[in-house]
């Protein structure tokens, strides 16, 4: 008689215990907990140094970080607040033009104009998105889809900010090390700040809105205000990325409202695994180099991303990170039945 076997999966005990309290009982456990974080932080911080002799890939690293920021914004809105944002490029564009204006007319240096542009841009985006916040369903998706396209048409038509040529001669960073570490560090800071926010009380309220908004209202909380805050955080990331791009390219133009900035972050989040923010970053790290490979094919890139996106959604993929972390936290063994 043949004995049948099945795979048994057991959660590692430390995962359960370390949820909320600090596991400091042995070096092994500490390593187990911090190794993945260290890998990410150390990896990102070391990357500019390691890529020193490959200037092209240094640029790619920057683009990875830009898309990581945008993916985080999308993931935060979609999986914590429950709002699908189809127009990440809106944030990029607003941030980019904001930084360009601040730099050109107020002559602010990049290190000041980027955070300021992110701040004002986020306020501007939140204000424009405010009317659709009291509504549920497809409204937010529709509005965010429309804004970047409409912005392009409006800027084109009224010849605002240099019209189709965009705004040129924006001050660059000068020092490549500052240029790179500024973004890498900012990405890491935002990543961990947002992750921390999601377990803080405000973050719990935000996640509560996704689960059951009526109940949050019945708890005496103004959910439109909370949603507006969440959008402010997300658009802050997006505008930051846009403002940074404006200073790197030394140019702000209509292509900042391009579809790439909307679709690739969605694809990165879906592929990397939504709901953890780390997944979004992982997705960006995987997809952006792919995008560089496909650069020669022009519009085909977007087609490829859209198809990847659809396939992953249809086969109900849980995303790479969720898969990996499940494997990391479990023992697996074959047992006889």
């Amino acid at each position: 008689m043949q004995t049948e076997k099945r795979k048994e999966r057991i959660d590692r005990g430390i995962k359960i215990r370390s949820d909320g309290i600090y596991a400091l009982s042995s070096w092994r456990e500490i390593t187990y907990l911090i190794a993945p974080r260290f890998l990410l932080i150390g990896g990102l911080l070391a990357a500019p140094l390691l890529l020193h002799f490959f200037p092209y890939w240094q640029k790619v690293l920057l683009i990875i970080c830009i898309y990581a920021l945008l993916s985080m914004a999308f993931d935060f809105l979609a999986n914590y607040v429950g709002l699908v944002c189809l127009g990440g490029s809106f944030f990029v564009g607003v941030g980019g033009y904001g930084a360009a204006l601040l730099n050109k007319y107020l002559l602010l240096s990049p290190l000041i104009s980027i955070p300021l542009a992110a701040l004002f841009g986020a306020a501007f985006c939140t204000l424009l998105l405010l009317p659709c916040l009291p509504l549920r369903g497809v409204y937010f998706a529709i509005i965010t889809l429309m804004y970047p396209l409409m912005m392009t048409r409006i800027i084109e038509a009224f010849e605002l900010f240099g019209g189709t040529n965009g705004m040129m001669d924006i001050q660059g960073f000068g020092n490549p090390w500052i240029e790179q570490y500024f973004l890498v560090v900012a990405t890491l800071v935002f990543l961990f700040a947002l992750r921390r926010l999601s377990v803080e009380d405000l973050g719990l309220v935000i996640r509560g809105i996704k689960d059951n908004d009526q109940s949050v209202r019945a708890s005496g909380i103004n959910i439109t205000f909370i949603k507006a805050q969440a959008i402010f955080y997300a658009s802050f990331l997006g505008c930051f990325a846009g403002a940074y791009l404006a200073h790197v390219y030394m140019w702000a133009g209509l292509s900042m409202f391009a579809l790439d900035f909307s679709i690739i972050p969605i694809a990165a989040t879906v592929v990397g695994g939504g709901g953890s923010l780390l997944g979004a970053v992982l997705g960006a790290i995987l997809l952006v180099p792919l995008s560089e490979v496909l650069r020669a094919f022009g519009p085909l890139r977007i087609v490829v991303y859209s198809l990847i996106l659809t396939v992953v959604i249809v086969i109900k993929g849980e995303g790479l990170l969720n898969y990996l972390s499940r494997k990391y936290h479990q023992f697996e063994r074959w047992v006889e039945i």
């Binding site: 719990l204 309220v205 509560g208 009526q214």
Partner: peptide, 18 residues
Amino acid sequence: RPYSSLPAYKNLIIPLYG
């Protein structure tokens, strides 16, 4: 319809935050 993705006690953080 509780906040199903949160642990039971975290459900109460939301009203307590209000």
